[in-house]
């Protein structure tokens, strides 16, 4: 069952945006549609055009895959949790006079940089529409960075042992929840295309 130049071109566009197994599956569907149209219309050009019209344009198909992607869903969950956990830690730092702590400025800057990178990556993962691989990579980096950030916060608390408070409990719970969300999402982002 030979394909058609128009269909090949469409698949090449999709191959630039989507993982190989997905493109392979889409190619089978598109070619099955083309075969059906060939039986119905008998003309290769008309059949290719009809199959492509029935299939949907590359932007629509890619956007549908990106919307349903595990990367986007993980990024969304972490971004929703972000302000709550961030505000909790902010309140803990303010009430604990963190600016007077012995933590070196370079460590504080590194933490701020990590936080900024995580937010940026997660936003890229949420905003992406046309590049599935970029969304997946941004979500993976963003999720990993959030996990590192929360682990650092937990480690700092265990090292400095600040006085217990309700705010600290809320912040710790938020960080542990985010680490669990990240631990759940990362294997899927790595294993699945």
């Amino acid at each position: 069952m030979a394909g058609h130049e128009l269909i090949e071109r469409h698949l090449q566009t999709l191959a630039k945006r989507l993982p190989d197994p997905v493109v392979e599956e889409l190619a089978d569907g598109l070619l099955a549609s083309y075969d059906n149209q060939m039986e119905r219309l008998g003309d290769p050009d008309a059949a290719a055009r009809a199959a492509l019209a029935d299939f949907g344009d590359a932007d629509t198909v890619t956007a549908a895959f990106v919307r349903a992607s595990p990367g986007r869903q993980a990024a969304f969950r972490l971004l929703v949790a972000g302000p709550i956990v961030g505000l909790s830690w902010g309140a803990v730092l303010v009430t604990g006079n963190a600016w007077a702590s012995t933590i070196p400025l370079s460590s504080r800057l590194a933490l701020g940089l990590l936080l900024g990178s995580a937010v940026l990556m997660l936003l890229i993962a949420i905003r992406g529409r046309r590049h599935y691989r970029a969304v997946r990579l941004a979500a993976l980096v963003g999720t990993g960075t959030v996990a590192v950030l929360d682990t650092v916060m937990l480690g700092t608390v265990l090292t400095l042992l600040p006085p217990p408070s309700l705010l600290l409990l809320v912040a710790l719970t938020g960080s542990i929840t985010r680490i669990m969300l990240a631990a759940q999402a990362i294997p899927e982002l790595v294993m699945r295309p």
Partner: peptide
């Protein structure tokens, strides 16, 4: 398979539910 799912959906609804093939896969 994906294309057969889309065709089945179209056939069982008398052609009234005819989704773009590419959006059935996601």
């Amino acid at each position: 398979h994906g294309y057969a799912v889309k065709e089945a959906l179209r056939d069982t609804t008398g052609g009234r539910l005819d989704l773009p093939t590419g959006t059935v896969y996601p």
